[in-house]
Amino acid sequence: MNKKNIKVNDLIFQTVTKIVVFIIILYSLHLFFSGHYTPGGGFVGGLMTSSALVLLLLAYDVKTVKNILPFNYINIAASGLLIAVLTGLGSLFFKVPFLTHSFKYVDLPLLGETSLATAVLFDLAVYLVVIGVTMTIIQTIGETE
């Protein structure tokens, strides 16, 4: 109850956060890249990445997280929207309707035969917008006293 003489000791929570954040971010990237053929995609991946950032915000304070990740999240959301518009406009160069996507099988050096789809770029835009909007909402609520 009396907070003056008890220093808050978050050692267990912070140590576990350091390990768990990597698992969450790796899994969110997995969800993001597997979205074309299995459940997943930009929205879930973005929500999961921002949940990892929220876990960092819970374990440490806002200043520390801002030092680690010096992003302006509104700019991230804006760049996501820009990428979405550009993927739509890119189809106009090939004389096809707006937002027409295509894919191609390419032999990548380490991964073997992979189908590279331009829909991934649109998914990346969704991913960035979701991270930007979620983190902006949470940081705005967290900073109002």
Binding site: I12, F13, V16, I19, V20, I23, Y27
Partner: peptide, 13 residues
């Protein structure tokens, strides 16, 4: 396997 590891780490905390 990842979920087993994750629950083993996080639930006691």
């Amino acid at each position: 396997l990842l979920a087993i590891l994750f629950i083993f780490i996080t639930a006691p905390v």
